[in-house]
């Protein structure tokens, strides 16, 4: 009855299950979307049509995205905790890193969907444009999202079994994600402003940092997830 268990199929099944549940409840994407929209409207009132806004555009965008992602990450294991499903998952012959990659991919997707919708709104709202390469801009966002969803999934697994999980995740997530925040701001801000020369080199350095950070934390998660999700 039992065949050799396919890790790829298990990861795909976890992603599919999360997508179906999200399509039914819409609780993660909708709450993230409303939150980021609210933050952008608040920025609009705070900064108005300030001409120097483009200098801060990258930073403000990522502050909004980071807290939005945090909101979603806090919800990402809720379905798993409902009715003991996490125990059901752990009881199956699933390699623990496969659970991580499935959950991380789902989080990456939901965060990216919200960003795909809200980046154009941000641009229109603040009359911004991407002066540099759009492909580079998308790459910087994708790399930042990988970092956020990798660290976020790992740390939300840590916090899920604690009583103060809603409070604990921001406390442990924000300090660890600071390098991603800094690199995301430098890279996307620079690309939006269409920088050249030495400043463009800074953009590439920031993107290299994002790649290194993503690889490091994917390896950390792969190595530690068995321990993190266990007892």
């Amino acid at each position: 009855m039992i065949r050799k268990v396919s890790g790829a199929k298990q990861i795909a099944a976890i992603i599919k299950k999360d997508i179906i549940a999200e399509l039914r409840t819409k609780e993660m994407v909708v709450s993230m979307f409303l939150f980021v929209l609210l933050v952008m409207v608040a920025f609009k009132y705070a900064f108005g049509d300030s001409e120097s806004f483009s200098d801060y555009a990258g930073g403000l965008l990522w502050i909004a995205f980071l807290f939005t992602a945090l909101l979603g990450l806090n919800r990402s294991f809720v379905h798993e905790k409902d009715e003991g499903c996490l125990e059901g998952l752990l009881l199956a012959p699933v390699d623990r890193p496969n659970i991580f990659f499935g959950k991380m991919a789902g989080n990456f997707m939901f965060i990216s969907i919200v960003e795909i919708i809200t980046v154009p709104i941000y641009m229109i709202l603040f009359k911004l444009s991407i002066e540099g390469s759009i492909a580079l801009f998308i790459s910087a966002i994708v790399l930042s999202n990988i970092g956020i969803s990798t660290v976020g999934t790992l740390l939300s697994t840590v916090s899920i079994n604690t009583k103060m999980r809603d409070m604990l995740l921001p406390l442990i997530f924000l300090p660890v994600i600071l390098p991603v925040l800094a690199a995301a701001v430098v890279s996307t801000g620079g690309i939006m402003a269409g920088v050249a020369g030495e400043k463009l080199a800074n953009v590439f350095s920031a993107m290299k940092l994002l790649i290194a950070y993503d690889i490091l934390f994917l390896l950390v998660a792969y190595a530690l997830y068995d321990f993190v999700i266990g007892e």
Binding site: I20, R24, H79, D82, E83, G84, C85, E87, G88, L91
Partner: peptide, 11 residues
């Protein structure tokens, strides 16, 4: 395992 928690996804 059959326990008092169904280990099922409600949605």
């Amino acid at each position: 395992l059959i326990s008092h928690s169904p280990l099922l996804y409600l949605d």
